[in-house]
Nucleic acid binder design. Structure first.
Lengths: 222, 222
DNA sequence: TAGATTGTTAATCGATTAACAATC
DNA sequence: TAGATTGTTAATCGATTAACAATC
């Protein structure tokens, strides 16, 4: 039967960071990379990188490492980034603007083709080279250009209504930056970003540091 | 010895979402909540919520649920959110502005007390009620107000230099939104947010959906 | 050669899931 | 009572970690 778990795999979340480093190394003219280098860059254990890379199915060269171009292709393939994805961004506030300015998306094959907002101040203006459309016209525009996914950057209060609307228009994949749990039908997949999750991770570490202040320094890697 | 792992615990990352819901319920005048309600809101399995809540150490009332005020306190305590944290935000671009506008931080005890930027266009302006200071003055200002952590929202190219600077000024905790792996001494703890990690999670799900299109619909929860 | 690196297998650990008891 | 809910224990699963073999 069709397994549908893939919850929040840390491996998957690390892949784009490897990719980012590999792009930079390629720009520097390098042709090969070792897991040692990647681990050093990422500040994580060598074996973690080894396992991640192995999952992509690539074969390396002992004593040399992996061919950078090949590794990029294998990671992209693992993530499903072999084709491009089209997206519409809804909500052209500060967060939406930040996402539009995120440079790596081009390398990852994410193409944000349209931007929508409900504010008269925003509609008609241009952000990072993209015109902001009236959200009221979204139905019309989707007839000519139907994106693979929607990126939601509207206020918490507006998020559910916008979501209902775009699902009606046939959107199946949603990347949600609003701080609410969207209620959607089973066929729709939502990836929610919770800003405060990172804060929680950080403060828990702070708490543990405080509590173990009398212990030995810190357990770092060997 | 002082365990220092706590990598990326999904439990910890879910806690702020529970908290967010609990605050809303309290505003609605509710006094108790069941894990059933929380699971429904979060769109996750009941047992996951039960385990998470149990980890906080709170005792519930069978057939009734948990006292909302108590649960808020237990979760806050679990996350180390019993005291407030002071932070400085570095980089007043779109992303920095978005973070300054994130309303829940007040509830979480995060107080962003100062904002720094290097651009003449930004310095002296006010964002969400906070004046933007010249990054060059950060050393001076830290003498009067030394934050617990720094939130880095500068460009990828500027991030490492800014990091070196603030570590020199005594910052030990960094919340990094720039798309680089910061190199820091062992004592410094960095929480990195990788935007593309969420995208990867979403696209992998898309890929699996495509591959299993001929299978039964989707495996949703029972 | 010696050493750096990949490849492979097994052990450990923690999160998720399942099953059922307790009880108001 | 019956049913909703918490509480508890065990099973499963997957990620991390460890150990060592292979080899250029």
């Amino acid at each position: 039967m069709g397994r549908m778990k893939i919850q929040n795999s840390p491996t998957i979340r690390r892949m784009p960071s490897y990719l980012h480093k590999l792009f930079n190394m390629r720009l520097e003219g390098k042709t090969h990379v070792s897991t040692t280098e990647l681990a050093k860059y990422m500040n994580i254990e060598l074996i973690v990188v080894r396992k991640d890379i192995a999952l992509t199915g690539i074969a390396g060269l002992r004593r040399v490492g992996y061919n950078i171009n090949d590794l990029i292709d294998y990671i992209k393939s693992y993530l499903g980034w072999t084709k491009t994805f089209s997206a519409c961004l809804i909500g052209a506030g500060a967060l939406g603007t930040a996402i539009l300015g995120y440079e790596d998306f081009v390398n990852y094959g994410l193409n944000i083709g349209s931007v929508f907002d409900c504010s008269d101040k925003k509609i008609g203006t241009s952000i990072h080279g993209r015109e902001v459309y009236d959200i009221e016209t979204i139905g019309q525009r989707f007839k000519h250009y139907h994106p693979d996914m929607a990126i939601i950057c509207v206020s918490n209060t507006a998020a559910q209504a916008v979501t209902d609307k775009i699902i009606q228009l046939g959107i199946h994949y949603i990347w949600n930056f609003a701080n609410v749990c969207l209620q959607v039908p089973p066929k729709v997949i939502v990836q929610r970003e919770v800003l405060a999750g990172g804060l929680a991770t950080l403060t828990v570490k702070m708490k543990h540091m405080d509590e173990h202040v009398e212990d030995k320094p810190i357990e770092t890697k060997k």
